[in-house]
Simulated scan of single mutants.
Amino acid sequence: MGSLFAGRLAHEDHDVSLIEVSGAMIEAIGEEGLRMIGRFGEQTYRLPVGPADRYTDAFELLIVFTKGMHTTSAMEAARHAIGPDTWALTVQNGIGNVEAIEAFVARDRIIMGMTNWPSTLIEPGLINIPGEGEIKIWAANGQTSENLEAISSALDEAGLNCKLDPGVEVAIWEKLAFNSALNSLAAVTGLTVGEMSDRQESRAIVFTIVDEVVTVARAKGLAVDVDHIRVSVEHAFTNHRQHKPSMLQDRLVGRRMEINTITGAVSKTGAALGIATPVTTTFANLLTIVDGEASRV
């Protein structure tokens, strides 16, 4: 996702640099450029790339695309590149990322949002954009500003279909419901999206988790649309049958899974509000056990 945003912004002549920790990615982009195929055709962008300590000057905007458990460490690594006028944008999955970023950037310079753009890493330095998406963003402090509007315009002009949405927290929680259901079940069972769809038992679990997340969101005063989420799930069941959700991909290669900002965050928020989330909490606990076992291997 970071490569998608970087490439499209560079396409519109914005000065873009990549902060990367993967040696393979740094080497590939350094030698061949950032390569993109798919929705926007075949493009190559020659961009600066390296770990955070490669850069010395403060950035105008940091776009954070790490998984939630890496947000704090990523911001800590880039602390020297954050100046008094630096803004930060997060359209990461889950919740809690704004609070993590706020330890480094004042809330009045943080933009939060969600995106459903698809982006697949084919090999180091090469990404495929298989379809269309959109971005919804708003200021974390709830206040509009010239910078917020400028950043939105830059993303929209880059072809990323960006909209300003004061109610973006609803969209964030709707995506959280989708991810909590599909990612959790996939990571525990090993099922692809299509395999979930084909079994009555797995469909029941998916929609139970969706309902529990919706209940928590509504207890927070958010007007989430359960029917909209169900339509998104059914679309995935029909059109992304072979897809392995990201938590399953992480488990299969022994990476840590994004639990605490997705399924675990729903369980924790529900408990704080006095809302029971028995199925979601059970999956959060199972994922935590599996994640801990994997870390010992």
Rank of each mutant, 00 (worst) to 15 (best):
T90R: 03
V91K: 02
N93H: 14
N93Y: 06
N93C: 02
N97E: 14
N97P: 04
A100E: 11
I101E: 00
I101L: 12
E102H: 07
A103M: 03
A103T: 12
V105F: 10
V105D: 02
A106D: 14
A106W: 04
T115R: 01
W117T: 05
P118C: 08
P118V: 13
L121S: 08
I122C: 11
I122A: 05
E123G: 11
P124W: 02
P124K: 02
P124D: 03
L126E: 05
N128E: 07
I129S: 05
P130A: 12
E134P: 00
E134A: 09
K136N: 01
W138V: 06
W138G: 04
A139F: 06
N141Y: 04
G142Y: 10
Q143H: 15
T144R: 05
S145Q: 12
S145Y: 01
S145E: 10
N147D: 13
N147T: 15
E149V: 09
S153G: 04
S153E: 13
A154F: 13
L155P: 12
E157L: 03
G159W: 10
G159E: 07
N161V: 05
N161A: 14
K163R: 12
L164S: 02
P166A: 07
V168Q: 00
E169V: 11
W173G: 07
W173D: 06
K175H: 04
K175R: 04
L176W: 05
L176I: 03
S180R: 09
N183K: 12
L185D: 11
A186W: 04
V188H: 07
T189H: 14
T189Q: 05
G190N: 11
G190R: 13
L191P: 00
T192D: 01
T192E: 10
V193I: 15
G194R: 06
G194L: 06
M196V: 13
S197K: 13
D198F: 02
D198V: 01
E201H: 05
E201D: 15
R203C: 09
R203K: 13
R203N: 12
I205D: 11
T208W: 01
E212T: 10
E212F: 03
V214E: 03
T215L: 15
V216M: 08
A217S: 10
R218K: 15
R218I: 02
R218Y: 01
R218V: 07
A219W: 01
A219R: 15
G221C: 06
G221I: 05
L222H: 08
D225V: 09
V226Q: 14
D227N: 15
H228G: 00
V231P: 11
S232G: 04
S232C: 04
V233F: 14
V233A: 00
E234L: 12
F237I: 09
T238L: 14
